[in-house]
Deep mutational scan, measured.
Amino acid sequence: MPSETPQAEVGPTGCPHRSGPHSAKGSLEKGSPEDKEAKEPLWIRPDAPSRCTWQLGRPASESPHHHTAPAKSPKILPDILKKIGDTPMVRINKIGKKFGLKCELLAKCEFFNAGGSVKDRISLRMIEDAERDGTLKPGDTIIEPTSGNTGIGLALAAAVRGYRCIIVMPEKMSSEKVDVLRALGAEIVRTPTNARFDSPESHVGVAWRLKNEIPNSHILDQYRNASNPLAHYDTTADEILQQCDGKLDMLVASVGTGGTITGIARKLKEKCPGCRIIGVDPEGSILAEPEELNQTEQTTYEVEGIGYDFIPTVLDRTVVDKWFKSNDEEAFTFARMLIAQEGLLCGGSAGSTVAVAVKAAQELQEGQRCVVILPDSVRNYMTKFLSDRWMLQKGFLKEEDLTEKKPWWWHLRVQELGLSAPLTVLPTITCGHTIEILREKGFDQAPVVDEAGVILGMVTLGNMLSSLLAGKVQPSDQVGKVIYKQFKQIRLTDTLGRLSHILEMDHFALVV
């Protein structure tokens, strides 16, 4: 994948999101292997301009796509893939009243899908469409860049269908997702969380590099694949309309690839034109409109599966009536509230959605109805927002919020430890010299600072030695090549209790 991002070429006709291997024109390309080798690009942008032909009021008969309808489940399912879809609609009884809503608040519980998330729908649909058009064949390999849930859905379907599955996901995604993927037989590649989507090191860039190296491999490409919004247009939206008897006044959905909100909203605009569509985008993402909503100094966020630093091709923002931004604290607070007060075992993005819903639905009156999409299960986040310690460490809970008995030293300040200034190293000294210094002084790690004293990161003896043994660096290389740029900081005025929580999850903390 090139470091400079080429513009994806656009073909003359058809839909841009065809499933299957992508040609340089962004659509299915038939021909000899030699032709494909000559024409197939190194990668295709996940934010390529959409060429979708959908228009409100256009006859369904003019759609270029294969459409399906929700099917009634048999008493005995032939395999677990038949437990994807037909998820329950559940009334939220307490939270709406707590925040003064007059309307009825309903939750579409997508964590009841077989793999635990709304992404099971698009995973199965992308595979079925690729099999139907002859792209996927027995023994082929599926590769997908994902925040985890699409990966789980694909790995689940691949396990049943017999495909090899490789999932490329950023490091910030939970260990629970990784464990589930491994249990399903998927191979996992992790990428830096802070890598831009168009960087060769991003999950998108690495996935395309693997595709170019592995024979008979395919990126189904949830960011561009029409099967993504079509899955929701054909099934999720129809289920909502049936469950609500066609009567709903507002739908609120958090947005990642945009397939969920695009597919549902398009069908609702056709069948229930008075329904307002509300999009939820986390602070630090750029999906919301108008652009002024996205202006923030924050560039990272903890909530998973929603928000991006690019506009995915499948996201149709014209069908969203209003956007709201959400933050991590309210997302996790509301997710825990949904679990504790409503018994809905949902993930953090569901918290984002409901946090926005109780604001947006203030305009609705008694007798009206708001539906929220709860995308995934708490299963993926047992060591994250479900953990009091994690919430404390991230600053989303305060010590006084917890009532468990603490040891005698818990409320003492870090400054009472009488710490001395640490050994520091410059980023320009060599790895070999740094190892000598650390061994001589008896230290395992040291902060790396520039000549102005600005902290650049941390270097550890173990990481340097393993990097040297693996051949990633040489003793003569500058130590700046092996620094940890993500590390926890703590102030002298913070409590030892807070430091204790940090050290339970990290090997060190830097006192500043």
Rank of each mutant, 00 (worst) to 15 (best):
E176W: 01
R276D: 03
S73I: 15
A186G: 06
N93S: 12
P33I: 01
K75G: 13
K269P: 01
G11P: 01
S175W: 08
C103L: 04
W208S: 05
K269L: 05
S147H: 06
I219N: 07
K137L: 11
R161S: 15
S3T: 07
I95A: 05
V178T: 06
A157E: 06
G151L: 03
C272H: 15
L105V: 11
A231N: 04
G256F: 03
I95P: 01
P200R: 11
S227M: 09
G263W: 04
K211L: 08
E62L: 09
P88I: 01
G151F: 01
P215I: 04
R18I: 15
A155K: 01
S63Q: 01
P21Q: 01
E110F: 04
P74L: 12
A71I: 13
E9A: 13
E37V: 12
P273K: 12
I261N: 03
L210K: 10
G274L: 07
A207N: 01
K75Y: 08
I152F: 01
V180N: 01
F99E: 14
G11C: 15
T260N: 05
R18Y: 12
K94R: 15
G162W: 01
I142C: 05
V206M: 11
L230R: 04
D129N: 15
P33D: 08
E131R: 01
E144I: 08
R121D: 04
H65A: 01
Y233P: 01
P12A: 01
Q7D: 07
Q222L: 01
K94S: 12
I127G: 01
V160Q: 14
P74K: 15
K82D: 01
L105K: 04
H17M: 07
E4H: 15
E131W: 01
P59S: 13
V178F: 11
S61P: 14
G139C: 09
R164Y: 15
E37A: 06
D221P: 04
T150Y: 04
D179I: 04
Y233Q: 01
E131Y: 08
A158R: 01
R164A: 07
N212M: 07
S50R: 01
K36Y: 08
K82T: 01
K108W: 01
I76P: 10
D234I: 01
Y233S: 01
N225F: 01
G26V: 13
K247W: 08
A195F: 01
W208R: 07
R161L: 03
T235V: 06
R196S: 08
N212T: 11
V10N: 14
A107C: 13
L220K: 01
R18G: 10
N93C: 14
D35I: 15
A71W: 01
M89A: 04
D86V: 14
A69H: 06
H218R: 11
S117G: 05
R182N: 01
A71V: 12
A195S: 01
H67G: 06
V255F: 01
T236L: 09
G274C: 01
D47G: 06
R276F: 09
P33E: 15
A237G: 11
H17A: 08
D221G: 07
G26M: 10
L105I: 11
L251A: 09
G134F: 06
E62V: 07
T68M: 01
P46W: 05
P170C: 01
R125G: 07
G31A: 09
Y233K: 01
Q222S: 05
D79C: 11
R45M: 08
I240W: 01
R209Y: 09
E4Y: 12
P88Y: 06
K271A: 09
R58E: 15
M173Y: 06
K177D: 01
S254L: 01
W208L: 08
P33R: 10
L210H: 01
I261H: 05
G26Q: 05
A207D: 05
Q222A: 01
T191I: 01
E110T: 01
I167F: 07
A155N: 07
H203V: 03
E187G: 01
H232K: 10
S61Q: 14
R51C: 01
L241R: 10
R91V: 05
H17P: 10
L77A: 06
L268Y: 01
K108S: 04
M173P: 04
P2S: 10
A253F: 06
P138F: 10
F111C: 01
C15D: 13
H17K: 03
E34F: 10
L77V: 11
Y233H: 09
G139R: 11
K97P: 06
E4S: 11
L251G: 01
K25G: 07
L42R: 14
D79F: 15
P138N: 11
A183C: 13
S19Y: 07
H65W: 05
S199P: 01
V168L: 07
C109G: 04
G148D: 10
L154E: 04
R182P: 05
N194F: 14
P138S: 11
A253N: 08
P192G: 05
Y223A: 01
G139N: 06
P33Q: 11
R121Q: 05
A157M: 09
K98Y: 01
